[in-house]
Every structure is written in structure tokens, then in C-alpha cells.
């Protein structure tokens, strides 16, 4: 099977039971993506598949044959940090750092969803395509990523700071 991972083509051969998360961590040595529950309840394994955030622990790797996957290792070039990564450091958007890769990937996927006009449950009117990425929108949209250290305030501030210019969306796609 063939994947594009962080822009690089990768061939892999594995037990069909292997999750995308275990493929990354155990077979490909990409241990940035984390395992916290292995059942889609914590978000630590969040990666981007063709730009969309998913829980890699619930994904059988075989289902994603041929797809393009971005992990935390692919969020910045080798030399530095992405603006969001730098903001996480500045705002102390983590303590132990274990949920952090999932939070980062999730935030990148979230911003893309906002740009595409994907609604969230805090919207007053489902038919209204505008999204103002305020505190409630941001928290609701990030609620699939648990942080037991409780760095939520720093995470939210880091995302808000980084994507301050992205707080509006156009009409729904």
C-alpha cells in the first residue's frame, strides 16, 4: 500500500488490523501522533487526511491507502515552528505535551472547516453561513481534543492569536 505522508511517498505492508495511528507510530517511526484512548474519545491521535482532521486510532490504515496524510511532524519545515506551534509555546498551550500534536493538527483542520463554512452547534442559526470564530465557536470546535493537564485556556488563546484574521467565513460552501 502507498501513502503520502507529510509530502513524502511511503510504501507500507502491514497486518490489516493495523490502525493508521499504529502504522504511523510503530511502523513508520512517526511517533508525534499520540495514543491516548485508542477509541476516538480523546483526540490525541488527530491527523489530517487530505486536509481533513480525523482520529487516526479509529482509522484502519488499509482504508486510507493512496491518501495524503499530514501529522504534527509535517506542520512545519525542519528549520522552525509554524505560527501555530510558536503560539502554543508562547501561550503555554500545553503542559506535558502529550495531547499537543493532536491539538495542533485538530486546530489546523478546524481552521480549514471554518474557511469552508462547516457549521458548529453553537451557531444560533444553522442556515446562516457566517462564522465568527469567537470563544464559544473555538472551544466547541476543539472539544474533540482532551487535555488532562488543563491547558485549554492557553490552547484557545494560541489558536485565536494565530488565526485572528480568519474569524469570518463566507457563505456556506
Amino acid at each position: 500500500m502507498h501513502f503520502t505522508i507529510n509530502g513524502r511517498g511511503v510504501d507500507a505492508d502491514f497486518d490489516l488490523r493495523t490502525s493508521l495511528l499504529d502504522l504511523l507510530r510503530d511502523h513508520l517511526g512517526l511517533t508525534g501522533s499520540k495514543k491516548g484512548c485508542n477509541q476516538g474519545a480523546c483526540g490525541a491521535c488527530t491527523v489530517l487526511v487530505d486536509g481533513e482532521r480525523i482520529n487516526a486510532c479509529l482509522a484502519l490504515a488499509v482504508q486510507y491507502d493512496g491518501r495524503s496524510i499530514t501529522t504534527v511532524e509535517g506542520l512545519a519545515d525542519a528549520t522552525g515552528l509554524s505560527p501555530l506551534q510558536a503560539a502554543f509555546v508562547e501561550h503555554d498551550g500545553f503542559q506535558c505535551g502529550y495531547c499537543t500534536p493532536g491539538q495542533l493538527c485538530s486546530a489546523m483542520g478546524m481552521i480549514d472547516e471554518v474557511r469552508r463554512g462547516v457549521p458548529s452547534v453553537v451557531a444560533a442559526d444553522m442556515a446562516d453561513g457566517d462564522i465568527v470564530l469567537d470563544h464559544d465557536e473555538l472551544r466547541e470546535r476543539m472539544s474533540g481534543n482532551l487535555c488532562r493537564c488543563g491547558a485549554y485556556n492557553g490552547i484557545v488563546n494560541a489558536i485565536a492569536d494565530t488565526f485572528a484574521a480568519e474569524t469570518h467565513s463566507k457563505e456556506p460552501a
Binding site: G32, Q85, D92, F94, Y98, P101
Partner: peptide
């Protein structure tokens, strides 16, 4: 002061117990 291990952690490069091959 920002965490000195912060850059490692946000890059997913901090190595946890199950990540030593």
C-alpha cells in the same frame, strides 16, 4: 519564561516511554 522543551513538544519530537524503538 516559555518552556525550554516547548519547541520539541509542539513538533511531536519529545520522546515518551512507548516511543523508544
Amino acid at each position: 519564561v516559555s518552556r525550554i522543551d516547548g519547541p520539541l513538544k509542539v513538533k511531536g519530537a519529545a520522546r515518551f516511554a512507548a516511543e523508544f524503538p
